[in-house]
Design a binder for these strands. Structure first.
Lengths: 153, 153
DNA sequence: CGTGAAAACTTAGTTCT
DNA sequence: AGAACTAAGTTTTCACG
């Protein structure tokens, strides 16, 4: 598997910012012909470096203004408990991220909801019913100082 | 500003999963003509519901296997201290997210690096030099149980 | 890697309901 | 108003040099 060269990196940087850029424009940006760009992109997709493309939506327009991080400690470390917990979490669409953590808490969840009230409803209907939970601590984000999906390349 | 109807939502769902889908295919998926899809997408973009498009890259291929959450408490709440801190954080590309938090800690950072060693280097070179920091606690993610950018629509 | 041609897609104008 | 149809202009895609 070929390692990434400098032009690959510039292509990836551009595609992270503008996922629908044409090969012609991309070629201008990185100093290559359109077909050469196309070939490299096809290779990067085949290698799995590019996992796919996505539209980025505005959370405000979709009633998801509020981000909450939830630290959860389970009542035990048995595999069955972890598996049951993870399966249940995966079924909650408001949970964008769920990490098994080293250190104090067992899991860290990132949740997006409309507002504090919506979080209370989510808590009652879903979070409080998650299996194997011993302790739960929720922290609200007051402001997203920085929030990007762009990996440094 | 028109509220989203059911077809809009299906279009958004599709575009979050497959940002480069053609209007023809999208039309098939949601039961509309290609041009009708195109018009709706143009409207959603103009309204700001769709913020843009991005290629999603694989962290493993880019030496970013490790996610670390960093809780930071500042030495004070003066606006100058917060501003200086935020400006400095924004300059570290490895920090994908930075939230001003309610509750215990002041800030929560999400950092992506190659491994623990790379985090140690980042800590020495950047995090430990952030202005106004009183306390810092880093927590490593052992496994990403779920990690999506797709908002529920 | 670049050029060029064919196929596919996007985009805008028009008509119909 | 919004959807379908049509046609011109781009873009993708894939030969070959």
């Amino acid at each position: 598997m070929t390692p990434l060269d400098d032009i690959d990196r510039r292509i990836l940087r551009e595609l992270q910012r503008t996922g629908r850029i044409s090969n012609a424009e991309l070629g201008d940006a990185v100093g290559l012909s359109a077909s050469a760009c196309h070939r490299r992109i096809a290779r990067l997709e085949a290698q799995g470096v590019i996992r796919g493309y996505a539209a980025l939506l505005d959370r405000t327009h979709l009633s998801r203004r509020t981000t909450v991080f939830v630290e959860i400690t389970l009542s035990g470390q048995a595999v069955e408990i972890l598996d049951a917990f993870e399966a249940a979490v995966a079924r909650i669409p408001d949970v964008l991220e769920c990490h098994l953590m080293a250190g104090t808490a067992d899991y860290l969840l990132k949740v997006v909801v409309e507002d504090a009230e919506a979080f209370a409803a989510l808590h009652r209907r879903h979070l409080a019913r998650l299996p194997g939970v011993a302790q739960m601590q929720s922290s609200f984000s007051l402001r997203r100082v920085r929030d990007t999906t762009e990996l440094p390349v």
